[in-house]
Computed example of a mutant assay.
Amino acid sequence: MKAIMIRSPISVLEKDQIGYGWAKVDFSEHENATDVIAKINKEYTNGIGRHSNSIKRFFNLANGDIVVVPLSKAIAIGIVNGKRSFDQNLAKTKACNLISVNFFRTNNGHILRIPRKSLTQGFESRLKVRKSNTSLNDFKEEITRIIDSIESNGAYKQETYLLEKISEAEQKFKKDLLTSITSGTTWLSAGGNGLEQLVKELLIIEGYTAAIQPKNQSSDISDIDIIASRIDRFSESNLLIQVKHHSNISGNHGLKQLMAFNDFEDMEYQKWFITTADMTDLSLDLASQNNIRVMVGSDFVDWVYENISDLSYATKQQLGIIEIPLLLK
């Protein structure tokens, strides 16, 4: 019996499934992970990159294995029953490859949410790993104790209800915030500068030094909006970022600006395209083929929300954010 953490949309969990990406490859058509990896390497220009272990962990899930899914301030736990399927409609949420899981639920059928505050520090810290999935075998004993407690004592209906309401309020806030940003009803300065200033502040919160670059840097299409770097005792990270304040769909122009920018040949860096809009599959493929990482609108508001307590008062005002207690009923 294995235990893994996997990130998956709550809408997929509600159907007693977990989902994984790689929309060009139907995992259910293959007998083993080796064949899946070979197919991915064939279908994707950049192949699997460093995702080999993640693919193997997901594909090799078997009946009886334990799955832990991080939720807002909570986790969901389920037992794999092993049935694989594929749903192309879930490609946008990187969840098209599916495995059936029996999730623990409350007496009224809702996904049971176990509060993160009830977990040990080590277990809770592991949930913060920014990977699609990771092994939790080191915490199998703790997870088994939680399962035994659920089966013996039943679900804590009140706490699950409160966590559900918190999650619903958070999702509504993120949706409303993204709508405000894309429709121009915030007080961010116009012309894209306000969004660049917000991205810069978020980078600084996460320990980067960041500088917004002057416009019209070159006579050709190449352009960078923000350069950021973070150096500590053990590592160095340099980011070249193009920021687009768009609604609906971002085109390829920003990607082409990044693709054309090659001024730092003596420095290792990551190129990032950050947009408040969405992107087509063709654009995402173009980004992947050119080693450009992408943050679309839903990912961007997640980033804002994760750092909301550290944003300056002025920035919160510009976004129209007020912080008052909310009474749940």
Rank of each mutant, 00 (worst) to 15 (best):
I205G: 13
N133S: 09
R230N: 12
L327P: 00
N32L: 07
K131Q: 11
S250T: 15
K15I: 04
L136S: 11
V296W: 05
N291D: 15
M1Q: 14
R7H: 05
K175T: 14
D263L: 02
N291C: 09
Q17G: 01
I226R: 06
I205Q: 11
I40F: 07
E168H: 10
E201T: 00
K42W: 14
A91F: 05
E43F: 05
I77D: 00
N252V: 12
T93S: 15
I4Q: 01
R113V: 01
I231W: 02
K15C: 08
V25S: 04
L71G: 09
S229I: 06
D35P: 03
I77E: 00
F273M: 10
F234Y: 08
I308V: 13
K256N: 03
G78T: 06
V301A: 09
S85T: 14
G191H: 13
E43C: 04
I18H: 07
I18Q: 10
I40M: 08
S8C: 15
I10S: 14
Y313F: 12
L203C: 05
Y305L: 10
L282D: 15
A91N: 07
I181E: 10
Y161D: 15
I37N: 02
K24N: 06
I37E: 06
N89F: 09
K39Q: 15
I226M: 07
H30R: 02
G122E: 08
G64E: 12
F300V: 07
A62K: 14
L163G: 03
K83T: 15
K42F: 13
N153R: 11
V101T: 02
I147N: 01
S247P: 04
H30K: 11
D299C: 04
D285V: 11
P214E: 03
K92M: 05
S183H: 06
V12A: 12
L119Y: 01
D220Y: 00
L90Y: 06
D281Q: 10
R50F: 12
S189K: 14
N81P: 01
D299L: 05
H246R: 12
T280V: 08
H110E: 14
N153P: 02
D302M: 06
T275D: 07
L136Y: 09
Y161C: 01
Y20Q: 02
R230T: 01
I48V: 15
H51L: 12
I146F: 08
D263N: 10
E164P: 01
T185G: 01
E306D: 14
L286E: 15
S11Y: 05
I249M: 15
N290W: 00
G82A: 10
I99R: 11
